[in-house]
């Protein structure tokens, strides 16, 4: 499949994620949207990795172009996992205190 499809798909996922973060009020959903963004990036990186590999492969069979992007994806996954654990802990902590995961609830508390 042409590489553009992957890139467009990744871009769409990313946009959905961004839109979700900006419009949703439920902390968990916002959080899931953020994860969606990260995974869109993963997809995009892998697609680009293939793209650059294909480009380099045309001139050099032994090329290692594109490996670094896959490596990057690994790191994104690790960091995402760390973020998940911290983020969920924070959300649980909040839920235990105010019995809600609504972001706006906090703003209401302030006034």
């Amino acid at each position: 499949m042409p590489i553009q499809y992957y890139i467009i798909l990744a871009a769409c996922l990313f946009c959905i994620g961004v839109a979700g973060v900006l419009t949703r009020r439920n902390a968990i959903i916002v959080f899931m949207c953020i994860e969606l963004m990260l995974n869109a990036v993963n997809l995009m990186l892998v697609a680009f990795s293939k793209m650059h590999y294909a480009a380099a492969f045309a001139t050099d069979n032994a090329s290692t172009a594109g490996t670094d992007a896959q490596l990057f994806v690994f790191f994104i996954m690790v960091v995402a996992a760390a973020e998940v654990s911290v983020g969920l802990a924070i959300i649980v902590m909040m839920y235990r205190n105010i019995h809600s995961v609504d972001i706006n609830f906090l703003n209401r508390l302030k006034n």
């Binding site: 973060v21 911290v86 983020g87 924070i90 902590m93 909040m94 972001i103 906090l106 302030k110």
Partner: peptide, 10 residues
Amino acid sequence: SNEAALKYFL
């Protein structure tokens, strides 16, 4: 503190 953490995190 909860709010700050959540906001900062998100």
